[in-house]
Simulated assay, not measured.
Amino acid sequence: MPQTLFEVHDLHKRYGPNTVVDQLSFAIAPGECLGVIGPNGAGKTTTIRMCLGQTTPDGGQIRAFGLDMPGDALAIKAGLGVVTQFDTLDPDFTCLENLIVYGRYFGIPRRVMLERGPQLLEFAALSHKADAKPGELSGGMKRRLSLARALVNNPRLLLLDEPTTGLDPQARHLMWERLQLLMQQGKSILLTTHFMDEAERLCSRLLVLDHGRKIAEGPPRELIAEHLEPEVVEVYGQGALALTQSPVATLASRTEVSGETVFFYTHAAAPLLNVLAEWPALRTLHRPANLEDLFLKLTGRQIREGG
């Protein structure tokens, strides 16, 4: 990468006997969105906390804007904007007051924030809620207010930890639109998410973590092409599981089962679909391989507990 805004080299973190982040390295270029995906407990949030100087790594190096974390933490934080998993808005202040007060942490005068605050609320589609308190806002509005607050210092890099968790589809799409506008303005983003459509839509590159280690990295479509067959046929309904033990399975390159659904991965779906037409009681879905298929192939289909 010819130019980097943010770099992590051989980052390592342990909690007791458990290695949470294991020799992790990555870099972010100006104007780029790097997505970090992985199962619960993969080390995503711990990585974000170390990048913010909130958790001390056991080894490795973090550099941002040519400065070192944690030695230059204050100077680095002046160039960062942060949206955490959970809202930390002050419930006693209005939306505009939340922005004005937060600006004081960066030494921004009140007179400046009185001008900048309404502009940020307009960007977040919250101008009509300037005098409302966070408790009066919907979940989507609170997340957009958190994003507006993260922009008060005009940061060069945004660190977003699952920013759309808990939002309905309309609220998620509005948040995506705002994040895409920020990237068009040259902002860089480090994004953790559990939503594969979000990762594919927003991210220039993806980092796939599992058990604290990087197991894949690259542009979303390139990762899909590298690790997966191009076509997928999903089959479900009574008798679908029996197909895995029948000659039908030989028509696919790879077969996986999740619950009552059989996934056939193939380079040419037509022969498989012709045979499946003989089972009209079964439901089939033919589609291209996507990031969710990649995620499940690399990290497994078993449910992970924990954060």
Rank of each mutant, 00 (worst) to 15 (best):
I48L: 15
E177A: 12
H267M: 04
S246V: 07
P169S: 06
L52P: 02
Q184C: 03
L228I: 01
R111C: 11
C33Y: 05
A64N: 04
E177H: 14
R63D: 08
N40C: 01
A199P: 08
P39W: 07
R14E: 13
P30S: 11
G107T: 08
R63Q: 12
P230V: 08
V83Y: 08
Q180G: 06
M50N: 06
L157Y: 07
V83A: 10
T45M: 05
I108F: 11
F263N: 02
Q184P: 00
G259M: 07
Q54C: 11
Y236K: 13
F26N: 01
G166M: 05
M175C: 09
R149A: 03
T261L: 04
Q302T: 14
N274T: 15
F65Y: 09
I37L: 14
I48A: 01
F195G: 09
R201S: 13
E198G: 04
V208D: 04
G38R: 00
I189G: 02
A130M: 12
T284V: 15
V83Q: 11
F93Y: 15
T193W: 00
T299K: 01
R110M: 11
Q170T: 13
L207M: 06
E122P: 05
D10T: 12
T45P: 02
T193K: 08
L167C: 02
Q3C: 10
I215L: 05
V8Q: 04
A125R: 15
Y265A: 01
T299W: 05
L243S: 06
E32R: 02
A78I: 05
T266C: 03
K187S: 10
D210K: 06
H12E: 10
E234Q: 14
S127E: 14
G306R: 04
W279C: 04
L223P: 03
E97L: 06
D168S: 01
G66S: 07
L52D: 03
A150L: 05
R49Y: 09
L5V: 14
T244P: 05
A216F: 00
G237K: 00
L291H: 07
I48W: 00
L285F: 13
L291T: 06
R143C: 03
I76Y: 09
G218D: 05
E305S: 13
P109L: 11
G31Y: 10
